[in-house]
């Protein structure tokens, strides 16, 4: 990989931005061509886009309040079932709130949980992992020991413990998910950086007098971003599902905030007489996480040269 000289004089954040832009420009045409060869990833991408749009424009596409309902209107079935009405297209929940509205607003919560928990994990994991893999030595051994220690905690137990002690809520949930979530990115980044460090282009940059920080940011990071990105998509799906698992134990997001996980958990006792309360948000989770996972998988097929479609 070559580096244009003007970039070196810019502040670090511009580097990252620039790297992304360069990557995009270079790859966008390629990427699009590849993506069209991979219809599953394409469809998955479209599904994700729909979810994002639904989250963004939730207040515009529904007239109901996601957090308010009336007990007199509770457990009304979806419109197509007997007793349903188009006022509540997907029915109402145990508090008489419109499920369609809660699904739309819940998309905000679920996407935010996925993006934030993975985003923070990637930043921490990548920074520490790159530093550990590049500099090695004491820093590496301390960080790696700590990572090993955290790895030895089962993820869910760890998250349950943290949530139980801090109490349910959005911020606490993100904290609980990232406390341990960064470790996997740390290990991946560390390994990849160690491998990249021995490559010729790094040697070349060294010889040309670049500083370590610059090399890490401008030379190595772009090359390991692909694998980080693939792992990130997988973890994002996992985090969204974990929100639901924690809600099952009453450790999710505070009511009445609509979060799919707590909606599924809340409705599980009425599966026999009001299947829609739990099933509809459950399907919302399944479709989103499936789309994210299949998109990530397709992405890997496209990005990983070893798996190139012949």
């Amino acid at each position: 990989m070559t580096t244009s000289t003007d970039i070196r004089t810019q502040p670090a954040w511009r580097y990252l931005l620039d790297i992304r832009l360069r990557l995009w420009r270079r790859n966008l045409a390629d990427f699009w061509a590849e993506l069209r060869k991979h219809p599953v990833a394409l469809i998955a991408g479209v599904v994700i886009l729909i979810y994002i749009l639904a989250a963004l424009f939730a207040p515009q596409i529904t007239a109901h309040d996601p957090e308010r309902g009336s007990l007199r209107q509770r457990l009304i079935p979806p419109a197509w079932e007997e007793g349903g009405s188009w006022t509540y297209p997907l029915g109402t929940d145990g508090q008489g709130r419109d499920i369609y509205t809660r699904i739309l607003f819940g998309a905000r919560v679920s996407l935010a949980v996925g993006l934030l928990s993975v985003g923070i994990s990637v930043i921490i994991g990548l920074a520490l992992g790159a530093a550990a893999g590049y500099y090695r030595g004491r820093l590496d051994s301390i960080l790696s020991r700590f990572a090993d220690l955290l790895m030895a905690f089962p993820f869910l137990i760890f998250a349950i413990g943290v949530m139980a002690f801090m109490g349910p809520g959005f911020t606490n949930l993100i904290l609980a998910l990232t406390f341990k979530g960064w470790v996997e990115f740390f290990r991946l980044a560390r390994g990849e950086v160690m491998a990249e460090k021995t490559r010729e282009y790094v040697e070349a940059a060294r010889v040309s007098g670049q500083s370590h920080t610059r090399i890490m940011l401008s030379e190595i990071t772009p090359n390991i971003m692909q694998s980080i990105f693939v792992l990130a998509t997988l973890r994002m799906g996992f985090m969204i599902v974990t929100e639901a698992s924690l809600s099952f134990l009453g450790l999710g997001i505070q009511p009445p905030t609509p979060a799919w996980g707590s909606m599924v958990a809340d409705g599980r006792n009425t599966l026999l007489n009001a299947w829609w309360v739990s099933t509809i948000p459950g399907l919302a989770i399944v479709f989103l996480v499936l789309a994210i996972n299949l998109f990530g998988e397709g992405l890997r097929d496209i990005l990983d040269p070893r798996l190139k479609i012949e």
Binding site: R68, Q95, G167, Q254, P255, P256
Partner: peptide
């Protein structure tokens, strides 16, 4: 949730917090 909804309905800015 039902109690807090009724308080809100009545015009009180009540919020629920589960612990």
């Amino acid at each position: 949730e039902a109690v807090v909804a009724q308080l809100q309905e009545a015009g009180i800015d009540a919020q629920l917090r589960l612990w």
